[in-house]
Structure formats: C-alpha cells, structure tokens
C-alpha cells in the first residue's frame, strides 16, 4: 500500500495486494461510461477502515463520478462495489442498511432549498431515529458548533448562506447521524484558509474519536498534507498511484511531479 507506481498495470497489482479484511470500501474492475465515453475504465480501489483517503486527479478526471458511482447515483457498466462487506447490487434492503451508515457531502452542497439549516440537519435524524424535539435541536447545535457555525445560522435558508457556510452546513448534515464513512467532494474549496485548516482539524478529530473513515476528493494540497493518511491519484480512468504523501513526492510520474512539485505545491509543502 505504501509503494507508489506510475504504470496502470502495476497500480492494479498494488491495489489488489492491499485487498484485506479491513477494507471498508472495495471497488473491483469498475467501468463507468456516459454514452460511448468511458470515464472510469477498470478501476480498483480499497479504502481501509478508519483511514482518511485523499483522492486527487485532474479536473474532469472522474473523481466525482467515482464517488457518485460508489454511492449508487451513477449506473456502472461493469465491476463490483462493496461497502461494509455488502455488495451494493444485493437488493434494496442491503442498500438501505448501508445508506444509514454513510454521510455524503456533495460538491455543490445539495442542501434542500425549501428547508432551513436546522431542518436540513434534522432531516436524516428524524427519518431514522425516534428522539425528542429537544434532543434534535441540541444535536443540531452540536453539529453546527462542530463545523464552526454560529447557532444563529440555524434558522436561515440555504439561499441566504455564503458558499463556505453552505459547505459547512452540508458537512453538518452529512455528519448528522454519526456515520461510519463520510464521502466529501471538495470540502475545503470555497473556505477561507483558516476555515479550511479548522476543517482538516475537524476531520482528523472525528476520525480519531469516532473511528470515521473518510473518502475525500480534494484539490487542496494543505488538506492532503495535513489531513490525509493516504492519497490515491486518478488518471485515464484508473488509479495511477496510491500511497502516502512521501510516496507521492517521490514519484516520477509526470503528472504527479507536476501536481506535487508545481509552484503552488512548493509554496505549501516546501
């Protein structure tokens, strides 16, 4: 899992080698196409329980598509996806049990526009837990505090929030049920650097305390550096490299060199 590889063939081998019982998400030979255009082409990926996986790749490489395919929003052409050891093609019942245990932060927030912030956060909780209004309100406040928002925000509507606030509320909603996995699609884009730093810190804390597994698509080199245990790189519809930050820095793959040794990267990583 720690070796970095530049060629797709050996990357597949690495991914296969890291297949283990503790993989909480495992994706095998996944192919996704829109019309005749293949976005993902025989992709293999394992995410271990309790790790923070940073997922990078060029814009339009298919990161969001992979995330959406794992959570079942985009139909796949072939391949299997297992989450918590459950094959997600195994019927509605299995799916619903899994869905209760993950939380998703969409790239554009996807808050319910006709519900207030409070109602957005309470929505999944109401659906799955029979608890009092008082506890619902308290949990809402707890989640808002955790994501760094003031309690006054609770009764605003999504159209009255700033871009960064939308991200935070969406994270609070993703965390509402204390899920075991969270999928984050560019969580720190649109946050100020201090906010983004707090966000990384928060993800770290949650991972340590709740044993959260995090699948994080990001372009934020700071996040990759400080928050992620492992980094996977998507290119040409496959995982072209995976490993720690040190592995990424040592890699000779041209795109990786550009990404991790470019001007902006040097400013961050030095």
């Amino acid at each position: 899992m720690t070796s970095t590889t530049a060629t797709p063939a050996s990357a597949t081998a690495t991914a296969a080698a890291s297949t283990s019982a503790d993989a909480i998400i495992s994706v095998r030979d996944l192919t996704v196409a829109f019309g005749s255009r293949r976005v993902l082409d025989g992709l293999n990926l394992n995410v271990a329980r309790g790790e923070i996986l940073g997922f990078v790749g060029a814009s339009g490489a298919g990161k969001s598509v992979l995330m959406r395919t794992i959570i079942g929003l985009v139909p796949k052409v072939s391949g299997t996806i297992e989450v918590f050891g459950t094959d997600l093609d195994g019927g509605d019942k299995a799916r619903r049990d899994v869905e209760r245990r993950w939380g998703i932060l969409f790239q554009h927030g996807a808050l319910f526009s006709s519900l207030s912030v409070r109602q957005n956060i309470q929505f999944p909780v109401r659906e799955y837990l029979k608890v009092s209004e008082r506890l619902l309100d308290e949990i809402t406040m707890a989640k808002l505090t955790m994501v760094g928002l003031k309690p006054e925000v609770a009764d605003r509507y999504p159209s009255e929030l700033s871009g960064g606030m939308i991200k935070r509320v969406a994270l609070a909603r993703a965390l509402a049920l204390d899920p075991e996995i969270v999928f984050l699609d560019e969580p720190t884009s649109g946050l100020d650097p201090i906010g983004a730093g707090d966000f990384d810190e928060l993800v770290r804390t949650l991972q340590r305390t709740l044993g959260l597994t995090v699948f994080m698509v990001t372009h934020d080199l700071d996040s990759l550096h400080t928050a992620c245990d492992r980094i996977a790189v998507l290119g040409n519809g496959k995982i072209i490299a995976q490993g720690t930050m040190a592995d990424m820095l040592a890699s000779q793959h041209p795109w990786l060199r550009e990404y991790f040794h470019g001007k902006r990267a040097r400013a961050v990583i030095g």
């Binding site: 308290e138 406040m141 804390t205």
Partner: peptide, 20 residues
C-alpha cells in the same frame, strides 16, 4: 484520550436555540 476530545468538542456547544 480519544473520547476526551469528543467531549471537549461538545462542551463548546451552547444551549439550543429553539426555532422561532
């Protein structure tokens, strides 16, 4: 130690504001 961070986290929570 792990749970202490979590409890610290919720300690910052202010009393709930009821919806209007």
């Amino acid at each position: 130690a792990n749970y202490a961070t979590l409890v610290d986290e919720v300690r910052r929570v202010k009393p709930a504001v009821a919806p209007p």
